[in-house]
Design a protein around this nucleic acid. Sequence first.
DNA 1: TTATTTGCAAATCATTTGCCCGAAG
DNA 2: CTTCGGGCAAATGATTTGCAAATAA
Lengths: 127, 127
Amino acid sequence: MRRSRQKDAILRVLCETDSHPTAEWIYEQVKKEIPTLSLGTVYRNLRLMTENGSVRELRFTGEQGRYDGNIQHHDHFRCEKCGRIFDLGELLDELIKEKVARKMGACITGHRLEITGTCRECRNSKY
Amino acid sequence: MRRSRQKDAILRVLCETDSHPTAEWIYEQVKKEIPTLSLGTVYRNLRLMTENGSVRELRFTGEQGRYDGNIQHHDHFRCEKCGRIFDLGELLDELIKEKVARKMGACITGHRLEITGTCRECRNSKY
DNA sequence: TTATTTGCAAATCATTTGCCCGAAG
DNA sequence: CTTCGGGCAAATGATTTGCAAATAA
């Protein structure tokens, strides 16, 4: 994969935020710096980076795809009111995975865990 | 929500399988019985039933949406080779959720957990 | 009767692709 | 040079929607 100004900028923007943005949002940000940028390029590069492991793709319930610059495994909390996604550490312990592996005769390579609820702010907001 | 022949058939087909089918697959099955059925009706009704809680929508992998007639909470194992989705019991224990709730000041309403790997059959297949 | 649901086709929306041109190595 | 990446616009594929006709209550 050849390097480019747009790839650099996309990855930088993604890594500088902790907001798990959509491709669209990244596009808007990078456009400020490279006005000729096209949305297709953002999708293309996010996909390439996901494939080579520089980026993680999150795909929650029915919504648009979101991206995470933090590739270390971690689980997520999604607030059902405001839609924000927060990082949690790795919650699922190895014992559970081993238990599943044994019971199913399967070989486990990963997991995705999303906890949902209402975040502190939304609980405290008036409406 | 008014009852209808197509709603009954859709729900029956979904509950009779354990294959976590797509809307398309359900459509093919029900079409055998109601040849005039349209795909739009399947989508429309699956959505209504998801909203009123008769059906569960699975949407983890970026793939097409899948539906589950078993509405009791349970987690899933997805084989990355054959793509099949197997049911697991409820794996995530309450303690973990409480810990998250306390740390985040959030109120937890649910979770989705998908474990991925290679199932027994695929491990044993030659290719 | 009359309110809902259906079937159909057109519309949406996120994402991907084809193509030709400009840039990277 | 020569190959790969970018911009653009058109294509795709899943899902949703608008509407007139059909059906459940």
